[in-house]
Computed example of a mutant assay.
Amino acid sequence: MMNVERIDLMIVIHSLRGGGAERVAVDLAAGWRERGCRVMIVTQTDGREDAYPLPDGVQRHALGLAGDSAGPVGALWGNLLRVWALRRLVRRHRPAVVLGMMTRGSVLAVLAARGRARVIATEHAHPPSLSLPAFWERLRRSTYPRADAVVALTRGTAQWLDEHLPGVRAQVIPNAVRWPLVDGEPLLEPPCVPGRRRLLAVGRLHPVKGFDGLLRAFAQLAAPFPDWDLTILGEGEQREALESLRDELGLGERVSLPGRVGNMAAWYGAADLYVLSSQAEGLSNTLIEAMACGLPCVATDCDTGPREIIREGLDGRLVRPIDDPDALAAGLAELMADAGLRSRLAGRAVDARDRFGTARIMALWEQVFQGERVN
């Protein structure tokens, strides 16, 4: 029989299409590969729609079992096929650790690898804000207590998991910011217009990101702050609706939606203020990146996420209530009107490079991989 290389770390995730968890999976793979580990990323999809390139030296195995199933019987059969395929891969490569990314990847990892590797389940969204089919809710409830460790991005999510999944004692490891930021595709240079200031927002164009409320807030600020423009970077299902709302509010000359870009460092560097308008967040990679780049930030105070990143009054502002354009406009106006305040907050925001630095976060993962608790 042909020899098969044994894997140190196997990361299980649906795809490497755009998304925070997908980028974290790639960053973790790269980090452990740099430490000399043999790493494999297992996806349901192939690489044709990847948003993030595979790190050098990291293996990729596509199960080819993506897609929706017809009805509950079809869904059950489809998931059995995924478990069997992943189990065969685990038997073949004998990984030391199998890391499931997000609920579905974590459930599949536990079902396929429990007893054959150290299995770690992770949550990258706050469960109350993410509706799951009842089938997956039941599977999470039955499988997570059987994982060797369950990891959440925030204390709020860890507390929810402990309270709602008997037998789980979740641990907290936030996402790391890889500093300096690395460029990817597509490359799009930010506009540089003398005398103009830029308010920047980044995220998937989805209702949960609250960009409609952000547009309504900016509509209140456009007249009193005539030298400020708003840029929303990202792509998604709400593009047409947001463009229509922008035009309806008379902001066509002041608000741009260029799409997704890969050279985020350039866009953070060209901005004067960052805003996160989300109704819910797992953590928020973009908020951490913006702070690491020295941007003062205003963020809605979601149930989890921003309040564990921004230190209120020290390196940013939190806005309450989260679904109120008036409150968001007031929070933004305070910083837009005061260059000195922006400078003071930005001076402390860069602490994010250490607070969420790769070395610190990787050390926490190493503890979990070795069976130690991190909190």
Rank of each mutant, 00 (worst) to 15 (best):
G115Q: 06
Q44L: 15
G67K: 05
R60S: 11
Y52K: 08
L76R: 09
L81C: 12
M102F: 11
R91N: 12
M102G: 10
L86V: 06
T43S: 14
V98M: 13
R88V: 00
L81V: 04
D68Y: 12
D50G: 07
I41K: 02
G67W: 09
T103K: 08
T103A: 13
A96H: 12
T43L: 14
L111I: 03
R87S: 15
L81R: 15
V58Y: 01
T122F: 07
E49R: 10
A113F: 10
V42R: 02
L86N: 00
R60Y: 05
I41R: 05
V119D: 01
R48S: 15
V73L: 13
L111K: 03
L86Q: 00
G74Y: 06
R48A: 15
R116P: 00
G74L: 06
P53I: 12
L76C: 07
D50W: 11
V58F: 10
G47I: 13
G78F: 01
V110D: 02
G105V: 03
A62Q: 03
R87G: 08
G47D: 14
A109H: 03
A121Q: 05
R87Y: 02
G78C: 08
R94N: 06
A66Q: 14
M101S: 13
L63H: 04
R118K: 15
L65V: 06
R94T: 08
P55S: 13
G74N: 07
A85G: 00
E123A: 13
R94F: 01
A70C: 08
A66S: 14
V90A: 05
G78D: 09
I120M: 08
S69N: 14
L111P: 05
D68I: 04
L108R: 00
L80M: 14
A85L: 02
A117F: 09
M101I: 15
G57A: 12
T103Q: 14
L63F: 09
A51H: 08
D68W: 11
S69T: 00
V107C: 09
G71M: 15
G115S: 14
G64D: 06
D46E: 10
W77E: 13
R38C: 13
A96V: 05
L80E: 10
G64F: 10
A62F: 06
S69V: 03
W77A: 15
S69A: 15
G78V: 03
R104I: 13
T43F: 10
W77K: 15
G67L: 09
P55K: 06
L81M: 12
R118V: 07
V119K: 05
R38Q: 11
Q59T: 02
A70Q: 12
H61I: 11
G67Q: 05
L54V: 09
G115W: 04
M40Y: 06
G74Q: 07
R48P: 09
R82M: 07
W84S: 01
V110Q: 01
Q59V: 04
L108C: 06
V42D: 06
V42G: 11
T122W: 05
V90P: 04
A62C: 14
R87V: 04
L54S: 03
D46L: 07
G115M: 11
G105T: 10
L89Q: 10
E123M: 08
S106L: 11
V90F: 05
L63A: 04
G71L: 12
H93I: 02
T122D: 08
V98T: 00
G100I: 07
R82D: 00
D46P: 07
R92T: 03
D56N: 12
L80Y: 12
A109F: 08
A51V: 07
W84N: 04
N79S: 06
L99Y: 01
D46G: 14
G64T: 10
